[in-house]
Nucleic acid binder design. Structure first.
Lengths: 345, 345
DNA sequence: CTGAAAGCGCTAACAG
DNA sequence: CTGTTAGCGCTTTCAG
């Protein structure tokens, strides 16, 4: 690796001059010398050592991203958004992936082991002199384990801290669910079944709230026996759909696309056509949901935008002394496809 | 940020001693001093500056990953595999995402602009002193633009260089397609329609080769009019399925799950049942393919394993002088689900 | 306009 | 067992 020192020796000037010239400081050297230095640098494929540069400048223009699990469907798009914003603002990213799914098996986020891992990753990033950290959750929830020794801006994406110390960006589950419900109501559906995720899930609670408020607003009584709880997996959608269809609902709002999948299966077995005999809405807009027959209506969370906003907040918090620290709710997009129709009595 | 110097001042020893103690060099200081230094460091939350450390050691234990597009379905899993292997071997990763899809629109990988971007990313990583680079393609193909000035090990994942200069890890398209075809043949299918991707695609060519070899091996004549070319998208699957079904094929092998999606649609419209009237195989094992009704049989590419192998090769190439530089083909897993059945005459 | 000198935070000889 | 010294590659005063 050729260094500034080497170039200085060859061109017969000081390292300072080489540095200045290469950094475009006008008048750092005479016209001819300037040319010569640049030419030599190019021909030797000189490349500044970022480590040395950053060490000296005490500034890395880098933020760290910690993903709970990069292979979860929402993560790449969020990271992509962060990356895009950073690039536009001349910042770089360092990625740390916890790989929670493969590392442990299931519920792990509130164990000492996980806290230790979190601390380790944060420490390691701080050691690398990142100027801020974005923590990307694998599903939305309240994070109660807040690492202590973080002296740099920290932002949560797709999850939020229990206390108001750090900012976070999530999407508006409640509003989206309300919108979906109203759309269904507008189509004449009154007997709407719901397949939630686990009762304790933030998503479940927020979406249920939205559902309830829409129903109430339109004066429709909610029977308790049409609210089912699944586990986000296809099979549970299949099972809950059975119960719901027994109850003759005219529409089903599944809180994710996976479970909606199971509804298709259940309906097929009963000879019922989705989008005709029964309307169906999902949530997440998984890439293939559009390919179901008929295409699944669903809710698209603003993943890329979550990333961008997080990055924006982090960069602002890095540059300003007053830190922003609230929860930001971004709106979702409702995608109506062939799986819903007006009620058919 | 507290430094070694600060701790040295407080404890009244030299920075060298603090460094030695903190790095666990036995006998770096007396028992008591050792304790004191460690205690002070802990209480002040001392954290070594990785930049300074790496600069001095001229070793970063870091490799760079360049993804053509992190949001493409295969990328996160490959990155995950690389990350896992690196973690097990005390290496860190730096991620650079080209965001090809959003940056340009479609075919872009052989434009000067893209070459420039590639060079820039590689230069930037080398500047950060990574010890090796893994380039993750967004789809498998021959990469003919090979950056020149790369003095460190470079490995391609999910794509391969035209010349034998750098190693690469891809999966065995041909073998997988052959296996699928033989499976179909074993179930009595002779009249098998194929929906390929674009004719120029590596995937198309390799899979077609596997298909042909299986058919030939079993003495089945291949009619040219049952080989259709789509564009990987659902709609094209839908269209090609129409032509194929007109020709009364008993099975369809779609070269990806998306297009298989379209086959479901087309079959539904014609009142044909997948897995009964017509057998269907996809490729990719997209997460939701399992949720089709009936579940789609498909091929699972060894994405995580591709990542792991790339990382393994890179770390080996970093440590050894003899560099490995061939293409490695990893086997896929055939997933037989309800969408295929024995032929039904 | 130019360069000598100092030093970012850390480690690795090597001498005491 | 301990500390001095030198320096990784770079930038940045500041004096000539």
């Amino acid at each position: 690796m050729v260094t500034i020192k080497e170039i200085a020796r060859i061109t017969g000037v000081s390292t300072a001059t080489v540095s200045n010239v290469l950094n475009g400081k006008s008048g750092a050297a005479g016209k001819e010398k300037t040319r010569e230095i640049i030419d030599i640098a190019n021909s030797m494929q000189y490349m500044p050592n970022t480590l040395a540069k950053n060490l000296q400048k005490k500034k890395t223009n880098t933020i760290g991203i910690i993903t709970e699990d990069l292979t979860v469907f929402n993560a790449p798009e969020i990271v992509d958004g962060i990356d895009a914003y950073c690039e536009e603002n001349s910042f770089e990213i360092i990625l740390g992936n916890m790989r929670l799914y493969k590392r442990y098996n299931n519920d792990f986020t509130d164990t000492p082991k996980h806290h230790e891992l979190t601390d380790m990753m944060i420490r390691s990033m701080i050691a690398k002199q990142v100027e801020g950290i974005i923590y990307v959750g694998y599903h939305c929830r309240e994070i109660n384990y807040l690492p202590s020794q973080v002296q740099i801006p920290l932002v949560y994406a797709y999850c939020y801290p229990g206390k108001d110390i750090y900012p976070s960006v999530i999407f508006d589950d409640e509003k989206a669910a309300k919108d979906v419900t109203e759309l269904l109501i507008a189509k004449g559906h009154k007997n709407i079944g719901v397949i939630c995720g686990p009762a304790a899930s933030y998503h479940t609670k927020a979406r249920l709230k939205g559902f309830n408020s829409a129903m109430t607003k339109h004066g429709i009584k909610i029977k308790n026996d049409i609210i089912m709880y699944g586990d986000w997996d296809r099979i549970s959608g299949y099972r809950m759909a059975a119960r719901l269809l027994d109850k003759k609902v005219s529409a089903i709002f599944s809180f994710n696309d996976m479970m909606a999948c199971g509804v298709y299966e259940q309906a097929a077995e009963r000879g019922l056509q989705i989008g005709k005999d029964i309307s169906l809405f999902g949530f997440d807009n998984r890439s293939i949901s559009q390919g179901y027959v008929p295409a699944l209506s669903t809710v698209q969370p603003p993943l890329n935008e979550i990333g961008r906003r997080c990055a924006e907040i982090i960069l602002n918090n890095i540059n300003q002394s007053k830190k922003y620290s609230k929860i930001i709710y971004l709106p979702c997009t409702i995608l109506e496809r062939r799986s819903v129709d007006v009620v058919n009595d």
